[in-house]
Design a protein around this nucleic acid. Sequence first.
DNA 1: TCTGGGGTCCTAGGACCC
DNA 2: TCTGGGGTCCTAGGACCC
Length: 421
Amino acid sequence: MFALVDCNNFFVSCERVFRPDLEGKAVVVLSNNDGCVVSRSNESKAMGIKMGTPFFKVRHMVDEGRLTAFSSNYALYGDLSGRVMSILADAVPHIEIYSIDEAFLHLDGIDPENVQEFCRSLVARVRQWVGIPVSIGVAPTKTLAKIASHFAKTHKGYRGVCMMDTDAKRLKALELTPIDDVWGVGRRLAPKMESWGVRSALDFVQRPKGWVQSRLGVNGLRTWEELCGIPCVEEENAERRKSICTSRSFADMIEDERELELRVSDFAAMCAKKLRDEGSAAYDVTVFMYTNRFREDLSQYFPSVTIRLPVAANSTQEIVSTALRALKTIYKEGYQYKKAGVTVSNIVPQDELQGVLFGYDQSLRQKQDRLSEVMDSVNSGSGKNLLRLAAQREGHYADGIRCERRSSLYTTSLDEIMKVH
DNA sequence: TCTGGGGTCCTAGGACCC
DNA sequence: TCTGGGGTCCTAGGACCC
C-alpha cells in the first residue's frame, strides 16, 4: 500500500503558521510578480476564486477587507516543506518526495491493522510540530492514493485519513470521482473523455484495455491499470535533474536589448550555480523569450534557441557568455518582451568530464572553475550576490519583480541579512 | 495598469545507417 | 507497369504534473 501525504492549501497554510489570526479567513498566495492566485484557503475557494485567477480580478476583495493576499515567499515554504518531509521520512522505511507539498510513503513493515491509526498519528504530529495541516490517502496504487487523499481532504468525517483498502471502497470512490480529477488526465484529455462518454473514473475502468490503449497510448493505459489497482507508476530517479530552468516574467515589458542582456545573464548565472550545487555540468544552454500573449494589440514573438557546448560546463562565465551569444541570435527589435528564461540541459556529472577536456584549453577551464568556486564561497555567506560578472545586473534578479505583499522570512537566517540591508 | 515558475515523459517524423 | 526493409537516434512539440 502507498500513502500519499498532501499538505492542505500548502502556501496559505505556511503563511497561517505565523499568522494564526488568519485561521478561518479567506487567504490567497500569489505567484511571482503578484501575478495570479496559486494557493487558496478553503474560505477563498468557497468565495469562487479559482486557481490561476489574475490578482487584479480579486484585488477589490482585498480592498474591501474580505480577503488577505500574500506575495509568494518561497524561502519560507521550502523551509517548512523540509520540516514536514523530515518528520515523514523518520516514520517510514521509504519516502518519495513528489513535490514541495506532497510525498508518497511506502508502508512496508507497518501492520495493516494499524495503518489508519499510524497515519492519524502522522497527521497529528505534523500539525503539532510544524503547524501544517495534511491529508493522507492510503491505497494500493499511487493514482488511487491521490484519489483517497482528495476524499480525506474534502470530507471532514475521515479526520484527515482515507483508507481505500477494499475493492468495494475502490469502486465507490471511482464512481464519485469525475474523470478530470484523475491524476494524469489533464485539460486536453478531459474533453476527449467526455466526448467518448467517459465521465467518471468508474466509466473509464469499465472500458476494455484495448480500447484505452488504442486511443490513449501507454500513458492512458498506465492510468487505467493504476485505477484498476495494478501499480505501474515508478519512482522517478531524482538523483540528477535532466534540465534546470531559471525564468521570470517582468513587472514591465522590456524592449531594450541591453536590459534583456542583464536579465538573461542573471538567469544564466542562477542556472550555473544550481549546476555546481549538485555537482553537475550541462552541454546545452537554451535562451527563450516571450512577448505578452495577453496583449493582442502588440505583435507576438516567442523565440528560443539552444547552443550546444563542445564540453559540458557549469562555470558562471561560460554559461553566462553562452546565454548572451544565444540571446543575440534571437533578439529582434520592435517587440515588447514580458518574460525570458535560461534552461540548461543535457546534464552530466561534473566529475565525468576529466579526460573529455583533451585538446581543450584546460588552464582556462581551471581558472573559470576556480573563479566560480570563489564566487560561490563569497556569495554563500552574508554577501548574497556580492560577487558577480560585469554582465549581470547590479543588485539581484529579483529586483524589478513585484512582491508587495511578502511576509517575513520567519524561519531562515536571511531574515537577519534583510534587516541589515 | 494588472495574467507564475519549474519540471518530466511520450510521440511522430526526419536523418541516417546497412 | 515498376522504386526495399528494418533499425537507431535525435528533435520538436505536446501533454501532463505541482
